[in-house]
Design a binder for these strands. Structure first.
Length: 742
DNA sequence: GAGTTTGAAACT
DNA sequence: CAGTTTCAAACTC
């Protein structure tokens, strides 16, 4: 799987789309063994697509600036001429026209209605002409166009959104293939595929939208392919409004050119290649390479900014003060290969493993410790840290304003004027600890967190992911940000942060299924099951003794799969077992009830007893003694209460004694410092100590003779010890050898 | 600390 | 849904 730079993504239509939803039903039924070996399992790769590298690149262009030269078709069937048509959503209209097509043909899908322009030389020009800014961004269905090129290459273009930005998609030439029109049936016979899925949003622009990413997958398969499968994953920035004429990227992949353009500029070519020299380019493995390269480019704050990748050596300076969010499907996991660049600014990367099919990855730099502010949230178990970006005078705009940045330099840029508010709870309130943010380091900034920490990140600025918030990892909580307008927080398990701490700049979303075709992940048993409390609690394993643990950031994808599997089995798997009872029941109760058979529900084996709640009708226990009137239970409760009281008494006695000693030392200090007094060891002589012990033993003997309870005996001893101390203190300044009598 | 007991969760 | 297996925590010695 290859990744295109966010620049390209930024030029694609906006709206996130589930790539699974656009799997063509006429995909080739089978793949060659070689191809299968390189491709991911079907369950892992929803859109397994392979691409062959033709000797001559075939170019398919999806562009906007090229005005439709031919009549727009809203065809519902394939046409002999190859002109096709696509379906559009209410707000998105695409023109698909066949213009001067000499050697290309299109196979239209009945439901498609998007306007396209099919140009000569294997170019498909997708032009979005009717963009509705007010369109519903949550629309899930978009425009889909399927075309079949002369060489049997089939293209499926799904454009959802209303960015109004045209797409120019160019594919390598297939050579001197005939320009015959192919229908759907032929498309099946020729398993060459090209899929474009654009995701977008565009109607909303917020401070953080620029970091939101979209995923586009493109793949093509050639029947006679001898090369390995190639997969593209385009991670597209959401904020397209910031696009300007300066938008220009040049990511070139060998033999292929992907071109995009904005409405205001001529089509620009985005090349995917190994031109790594420029910070604005993302290198992708050679097309012929049988190995898969999974790269996800992460958009920078500026949608059209060329420096937007965490995957390859490129300048990350622009990532300063940003939150980069990527959404991808677990079934088509995108592996982010983090490669340091000498110019890369320390960036903190947080991967939010999604539940189910969605994963969120957040990358943000934590600038300096001064940007961290502790937040006290009344009633909250957590303490938060607010990460606030520095606002500078050079800020270019405000929230919602498109930010333009065409700079290709590696200089850190302050383009975000609004505060990026990220609150990270530090520690549970019960175990509050002072966290000192670590300074920036070359390897990335580390944020110290605790087990129960939660990461809070702005949520409302990520509209396209909100529909998938239900897929957030266990422990994720959505919370409004008081006083922040419509700004909200997604409270995420902070283990993601601590995981980052362990590997400041680590490979994110390391989808072993994707990155390691050999299936290494299957060699070790995944401790991602209900047996692991950490996993069951929706937390990463940390400081536990797991072996071959996959419940960590490095195995995010596997973890997400396991979570999904658990949820498939039991949707309540990650919900607390102890909750409120039925309506009208105020007491807590076990959601499922226990199933004890031998413990009588009076041992900690019983989850009800362990939770200090009585068994209910939900329980299936045998010989239950954990009910209100149970004498056994009452006895246990009394014993437990007595033990607790005893502990409290002992604690109080120790505290009192400590206080007395401390007071003694305090009183003697002035004398010591003045030189007029004596040090304690000068008057607490051996004799005094022995006499004191005798007094204490005497108290113990008396208590024993009187058959006093142990607690009483201890109290008598402690009280005697206090008296002894007082006598010592009072005698210290009087005589050289204080006399102590019991 | 090692071995046993126990019950939840996974598995069949 | 029931029986079995696996696992880790609770418990005992």
């Amino acid at each position: 799987m290859d990744v295109v730079s966010p620049e390209l993504n930024s030029l694609l239509p906006d709206e996130i789309m589930d790539t699974e939803a656009i799997i063509m039903d006429d995909d080739p039924p089978a793949e060659s063994p070689a191809a299968s070996g390189q491709s991911q399992p079907s369950d892992d790769s929803p859109v397994p697509m392979e691409m062959d590298v033709p000797a001559v690149p075939e170019i398919v262009s999806l562009c906007s600036d090229a005005p439709p030269t031919q009549l727009t078709q809203a065809g519902t069937t394939s046409t002999p001429t190859g002109s096709t048509l696509c379906s559009t959503t209410s707000a998105t209209q695409l023109l698909l026209t066949s213009s001067t097509v000499s050697s290309s043909s299109l196979t239209l899908r009945p439901k498609l209605s998007a306007p396209f322009t099919l140009s000569a030389n294997h170019q498909i020009i997708l032009n979005k002409v009717a963009s509705s800014p007010g369109a519903d961004t949550t629309r899930s269905q978009g425009t889909t166009t399927t075309t079949t090129t002369p060489g049997g290459q089939q293209f499926m273009v799904t454009a959802i959104g209303k960015s109004g930005q045209p797409i120019v998609l160019q594919l390598p030439h297939t050579g001197s293939k005939s320009a015959s029109v192919q229908g759907l049936g032929e498309a099946k016979a020729n398993p060459q595929h090209f899929k474009v899925v654009t995701v977008s949003s565009a109607s909303q622009v917020s401070t953080l939208q620029a970091q939101q990413l979209k995923t586009v997958q493109i793949a093509k398969k050639t029947q006679v392919s001898s090369a390995g499968p190639i997969k593209f994953v385009f991670t597209k920035a959401v904020n397209n409004k910031g696009l300007t004429a300066q938008t220009s990227v040049s990511n070139v992949i060998t033999g292929r050119v992907l071109s995009t353009s904005s409405p205001v500029t001529p089509p620009r070519t985005i090349t995917l290649s190994e031109t790594l020299g420029s910070s604005s380019k993302i290198a992708i493995s050679p097309l012929k390479s049988p190995s898969k390269l999974t790269v996800v480019s992460v958009a920078s704050q500026v949608p059209n900014s060329p420096q937007k990748s965490v995957s390859l050596p490129l300048n990350m300076a622009h990532l300063g003060h940003q939150i980069l969010l990527q959404q991808s499907t677990a079934t088509s996991p995108a592996k982010v290969v983090s490669t340091h660049s000498t110019t890369m600014k320390p960036v903190q990367t947080v991967t939010v493993g999604g539940v189910g099919a969605t994963q969120f990855k957040t990358i943000f730099p934590l600038s300096t410790p001064s940007n961290v502010q502790q937040i006290q949230v009344p009633g909250s178990r957590f303490h938060y840290v607010r990460l606030v970006t520095a606002t500078t005078g050079s800020s270019t705009g405000h929230a919602g304003s498109p930010i333009t940045n065409s700079s290709m330099t590696a200089k850190p840029m302050v383009v975000n004027t609004t505060q990026v508010r990220m609150s990270v709870p530090i520690v549970p309130a019960q175990t509050m600890k002072q966290v000192v943010p670590k300074p920036l380091t070359s390897s990335g900034q580390v944020l110290t967190t605790q087990t129960q920490q939660r990461l809070i990140m702005p949520a409302t600025s990520l509209p396209q992911i909100q529909p998938n918030l239900t897929n957030l990892p266990p422990g994720t909580v959505l919370a409004p940000a008081p006083g922040s307008g419509n700004m909200g927080y997604a409270v995420l398990p902070a283990q993601y942060v601590t995981q980052l701490q362990q590997s400041a700049y680590v490979t994110l979303a390391s989808s072993s299924g994707f990155s390691t075709p050999t299936g290494i992940q299957t060699q070790a048993r995944l401790p991602l099951n209900g047996y692991c409390d950490c996993f069951a609690n929706g937390e990463f394993c940390q400081n536990c003794n797991c072996t071959n643990c996959f419940n960590n950031l490095e195995h995010e994808t596997d973890r997400a799969k396991a979570i999904k599997a658990c949820l498939d089995r039991n949707p309540e798997a990650f919900k607390p077992k102890i909750g409120k009872g039925k309506e009208g029941e105020s007491d807590r109760r076990h959601s499922k009830g226990c199933n004890c058979k031998r413990s009588g529900c009076l041992k900690n084996y019983c989850e009800c007893y362990e939770a200090k709640i009585m068994c209910s009708s939900t329980c299936k226990c045998v010989g239950c003694k954990n009910f209100e009137e149970s004498p056994e239970r009452k006895t246990l409760m009394h014993l437990a209460d007595a033990a607790e009281v005893r502990v409290q008494q002992q604690t109080a006695a120790k505290t009192k004694l400590s206080s007395q000693i401390s007071d003694l030392l305090t009183r003697t200090t002035p004398a010591i410092t003045s030189g007029g007094g004596r040090m304690p060891y000068t008057f607490v002589t051996k004799e005094v100590a022995e006499v004191t012990c005798e007094c204490l033993l005497e108290q113990a003997e008396q208590a024993e003779l009187n058959q006093q309870p142990q607690a009483t005996a201890e109290r008598m001893i402690l009280e005697e010890f206090g008296r002894c101390l007082m006598r010592i203190i009072s005698s210290a300044g009087k005589t050289d050898c204080p006399s102590i009598n019991c």
